[in-house]
Amino acid sequence: MPGCRGAAPARRWWAVRPRRYRHRYHTDLQEAYAKVLPACDHQPRPKGSGNTSIAEASNCSLRQRCRVLVRKSCSFGKSRTMPTARSKLVSDNYNITLK
């Protein structure tokens, strides 16, 4: 969750998560996560414990392989579907290489 790390943004983030991704969350010790995520699936860990490394690796891979997401300029294409399509292609390709 980039930006503000309060309970309101965490609730908005949780509301848009697809159901198939709503399980086993390893997070840091922020209070907002404990307020929003179900206790049975939330596993808080201190920073540096290594349990969030999978998420960090996929985020880093997405940034490296889909450069349009990290542009310094404010100019983007007119299409709203292309960034989503690019992200999906990169994620799918990354998942295939892990198998």
Rank of each mutant, 00 (worst) to 15 (best):
A10E: 06
L98D: 04
G50D: 02
D28M: 03
L98T: 04
R45H: 14
G48M: 07
G77T: 03
C4Y: 01
V68E: 10
S79G: 12
K88M: 14
R71Q: 12
Y94G: 01
S75F: 12
K99N: 09
D92N: 02
F76K: 11
K72T: 07
R17S: 00
R86V: 03
E56R: 04
D28A: 03
Y33E: 15
G6E: 02
A34C: 10
C4T: 06
N95P: 05
K35Q: 15
A55M: 15
H23I: 00
R45I: 00
T52D: 00
G48H: 10
L62F: 12
A85S: 09
R11E: 12
C66M: 11
D28K: 15
R24N: 05
P38T: 07
A57H: 10
G50V: 09
K78T: 09
Y25A: 12
V90A: 09
E56K: 06
A34W: 05
P44V: 10
P38D: 08
T81S: 05
W13R: 03
R5W: 01
P2E: 00
L98I: 02
S53M: 13
A34T: 14
A34S: 11
K47C: 09
R71F: 01
K78H: 07
T84S: 06
S91N: 04
N59Q: 07
K47A: 12
K88F: 13
N51P: 00
A34H: 06
T84D: 00
C4F: 06
R17N: 00
S49Q: 11
F76E: 08
I96Y: 10
L89E: 02
A7M: 07
C40L: 10
C60H: 11
T84P: 00
R63W: 07
L98C: 08
F76Q: 08
S87E: 11
D28H: 01
S79C: 14
L98E: 04
A15I: 03
A7D: 09
V70Q: 11
K88V: 14
R65I: 09
R65A: 04
P9Y: 01
S58T: 11
G3Y: 04
K47G: 06
D28G: 03
K88R: 14
R22T: 10
D92G: 00
S58H: 10
L89D: 00
V90G: 01
S58D: 07
P44C: 08
M82F: 12
Y94W: 12
R19F: 02
T27D: 03
P18E: 04
P38S: 08
R12Y: 12
A57F: 08
A8G: 01
R71I: 10
Q64D: 11
T52Y: 11
D28S: 10
K35V: 11
N93D: 12
V68Y: 03
R19W: 09
R22K: 15
S53C: 13
K78L: 14
G50M: 03
Q30M: 15
G3L: 04
Y21T: 13
P38F: 13
N95S: 09
I96G: 04
L69P: 02
Q43K: 15
E31S: 14
R65W: 14
N59E: 06
R63E: 05
V90P: 05
A57G: 05
N95V: 07
R17T: 06
S91A: 08
V68Q: 11
S91D: 05
D92Y: 00
Y94R: 11
H23R: 05
C4K: 14
R24S: 06
I96W: 12
